[in-house]
């Protein structure tokens, strides 16, 4: 960052900040420029949602109750297995029993660690 003769530190830093601000402006412009295409894509997805009667995003496919949280029972997170990857905050406070043999989980320990 050693300024060359005649080049002020503030010039260098202002130029950097200006360049960053310009990039942010470009990103805003990019978002605006993409908007019509994205609106078309979203409208197409919306059509699919309507004709299939979908209720949820296909984001959480690890277990069936996680797949359609909108249609699961309120407490279905606990319904399958005490180790279930549930989405309730309270679950983080309940540790596994110490004396639980690996086989009691229904799958092996290294499968869990995977």
């Amino acid at each position: 960052m050693k300024p060359a003769a005649g080049l002020r530190r503030s010039s260098v830093v202002f130029a950097l900040i200006g360049a960053l601000a310009l990039m942010l402006a470009l990103e805003v412009a990019h978002a605006a420029w993409r908007a019509p295409a994205e609106a078309r894509r979203i409208a197409a997805s919306a059509g699919l949602v309507r004709s299939l009667g979908l209720t949820d995003l296909a984001l959480f496919t690890e277990a069936r109750y996680a797949r359609h949280p909108a249609l699961a029972d309120l407490h279905s997170a606990f319904q399958d297995n005490p180790m279930s990857f549930e989405h309730f905050p309270s679950g983080s406070f309940v540790p596994l029993p110490h004396a639980l043999p690996a086989s009691a989980l229904g799958f092996s320990a290294d499968e869990v660690s995977r």
Partner: peptide, 18 residues
């Protein structure tokens, strides 16, 4: 993080917006 233990994770792009 979102993937969790899912085998299928959608290959999606989100609509950019600020």
């Amino acid at each position: 993080v979102l993937k969790g233990w899912s085998v299928i994770y959608p290959d999606f792009r989100l609509a950019p917006q600020i």
